[in-house]
Design a protein around this nucleic acid. Structure first.
Length: 571
DNA sequence: GCCGTTTTCGGCCCGACTGTTTTCAGTCG
């Protein structure tokens, strides 16, 4: 899959053109790059089918360039651009506070080419001596450098803090409403900072409370309507206060995404409106026609209301125009969890403890799915698995209020065979297949390996189907179309793994799997009782992938589940 | 370079903030 590779080159072209003061082309290249980044299909497939120009933002010229790159592995235009540009100062554009103009000045006046040079120059206070620059500017850029070097945070790590602060603000009597905004409101898998929007008539009191919270480490900015702090845990929070009359439009604006908002504004313009964070205004007389509630804005523009998780300009606006948006799966709608580990393999809790915790979440059922067939993760051998199954049956009878299913996470070996005998496979209620080794196999090897496993007839769920660990390990190279088709043919369910660093399948691939009419199971892959809460992250990801309750097998009650897995259930 | 339910040419989202300077260019979200 070369989508990201192609997108990166287009981004770089955009940066270089921007540095050359070329107008509009940078935006065009960035738009194409963004859409390729978000493309559910493999760009090589799109190219082979001659459909490159169907990608929004990709026209004749860019499609030719993509074709050249995919065919030859090179792009002459790009090579030439790089040669022509005086120095590779594109790196500087990644720093918040530095745009094309400043980057060029830094190079011209101080010979600064990259972040390293820049850091040295700041240490010697060379920047503040430049015209129209000062100490503040220098400090800002230094902070920008730090931000480039700190990675984005996992949603699962930031969300509890975000919800806690949101609650604190809502408990304040001077606050009418506080809501999360930005990427965390859209439940993106990683976030840069937490945005919170507050509606209040007493902004000073709210701002004072916010900047003086005991967990604030330092205050970055503190004004009437906007403040920024960094918490002791390193998370940055931006708080904005707006009046009630424009709360809806402000929320709409700050939730984003940027791409979604740009599209929305274009629609507004065509319909004779102007949209900004203060409201939706009629162009001819500047009369405000919406702003109090987000719903009103969407309605005035002829759209159904779009849930924040969908606002990525991935087709949701077109769907909303036709009033054909899917009804997304709701938070809290899972009836059970089908993937978790216990002390029997690499988990830390007992079967009983996991069952009790699941019961507290209101679940009707869980499946215990410890590892088998691995040399790591304290995986069980067949003898131990046999003992565990009878133990699970015993505990299930003893424990009221929740059904405990006997399952296993079975290693898919490099040749695609399963690391468990047929005889044992037949005794399990839920059989999860998973890849744990040779992540760097070729695309064809990995595809064959998984296809063979799924075709065995003994796999009910494919766990973490792409194997990625966010910001740590790339997804393995695999032909997802083939995997999805094989899964469809063999009635294999795709897992949406809810662990914060997995979220696998991801949003884009969920949307793609839906085109194959596949079913999902939102599982936590818990290794202790607390992990069960991560299910909400899985639901968030499912929502970002446009999944509905009917697409997710574990939104159904026990009888429904039993019917679905009727070929495997022994229960 | 892309794109069209005002268009195949002439536009391309929009406003706030920041720092430095005295009227605004540059950058951001």
């Amino acid at each position: 899959m070369k989508n990201l590779e192609v997108a990166r080159i287009l981004y770089e072209i955009a940066d270089i053109l921007e540095l050359q003061d070329v107008k509009f082309k940078p935006a065009a290249y960035r738009r194409a790059a963004r859409n390729i980044e978000n493309l559910p299909e493999d760009i090589e497939e799109v190219y082979k089918n001659g459909k490159l120009e169907n990608i929004p933002g990709v026209g004749k010229n860019i499609s030719k360039k993509i074709a050249e790159y995919l065919k030859t592995g090179k792009l002459k235009y790009y090579e030439k651009l790089k040669k022509k540009s005086p120095a590779h100062i594109e790196e500087l554009l990644n720093i918040s506070g530095i745009g094309p103009k400043l980057a060029k000045r830094l190079y011209k006046e101080l010979k600064i080419k990259n972040i390293e040079d820049l850091k040295k120059a700041i240490k010697q206070h060379k920047l503040e001596k430049l015209e129209r620059m000062g100490t503040k500017a220098e400090e800002n850029i230094l902070r920008g450098i730090e931000n480039v070097q700190t990675k984005r945070m996992l949603l699962g790590l930031a969300l509890p803090t975000a919800l806690e602060i949101e609650k604190r603000l809502n408990n304040l009597k001077e606050v009418e409403t506080a809501s999360l905004a930005g990427s965390i409101a859209r439940r993106k898998e990683t976030i840069g900072d937490i945005d919170i929007l507050v509606c209040s008539t007493k902004p000073e009191i709210v701002m004072n409370f916010f900047t003086k919270m005991s967990d604030v480490k330092n205050i970055l900015a503190s004004g009437e309507t906007k403040s920024s702090v960094v918490l002791k845990n390193g998370i940055q929070i931006d708080l904005r206060i707006v009046p009630r009359s424009s709360y809806g439009s402000a929320l709409q604006y700050f939730i984003g995404s940027k791409e979604h908002n740009i599209k929305l504004r274009q629609i507004a313009l065509k319909k004779g409106y102007k949209l900004n964070e203060y409201g939706l205004f009629r162009k001819k007389d500047n009369k405000k026609v919406a702003g109090y509630r987000q719903e009103d804005i969407y309605r005035k523009l002829g759209l159904s209301y779009i849930e924040p998780e969908m606002r990525e300009n991935r087709g949701e606006i077109e769907c909303a125009q036709k009033h054909k948006l899917p009804k997304l799966i709701k938070y809290g709608s899972l009836k059970g969890d089908l993937h978790m580990h216990t002390k029997w393999s690499d988990g830390s809790a007992t079967i009983e403890k996991m069952a009790e915790a699941a019961k507290k979440l209101g679940y009707e059922y869980i499946a215990i799915t410890d590892h088998v067939g691995l040399s790591v993760a304290r995986a069980m051998d067949e003898k131990r698995l046999k003992r565990q199954i009878s133990e699970i049956r015993k505990i299930d009878k003893k424990t009221g209020g929740i059904k405990i299913l006997a399952g296993a996470e079975i290693d898919i070996k490099p040749d695609g065979s399963l690391a468990l005998s047929r005889q044992m496979l037949k005794q399990l209620d839920i059989r999860i297949g998973a890849i744990h080794s040779r992540f760097k196999s070729s695309k064809s090897e990995m595809t064959q390996r998984i296809v063979r496993a799924l075709s065995s007839g003994y796999i009910d769920i494919l766990a973490h189907p792409t194997g990625r660990l966010i910001q740590k390990r790339n997804p393995y190279d695999v032909d997802l179309d083939k995997i999805f088709q094989t899964a469809k043919d063999n009635k294999v369910v795709m897992e949406i793994n809810s662990m914060p660093e997995r979220l696998d399948l991801n949003d884009i691939n969920i949307k793609k799997a839906l085109e194959f009419k596949l079913k999902f199971s939102i599982n936590t892959d818990s290794h202790n009782a607390e992990n069960l809460h991560f299910a909400e992250l899985g639901i968030a990801t499912a929502r970002r992938g446009w999944a509905q309750a009917k697409d997710v097998v574990n939104t159904g009650g026990f009888n429904e589940l039993k019917k679905f897995f009727t070929h495997s259930f022994k229960y």
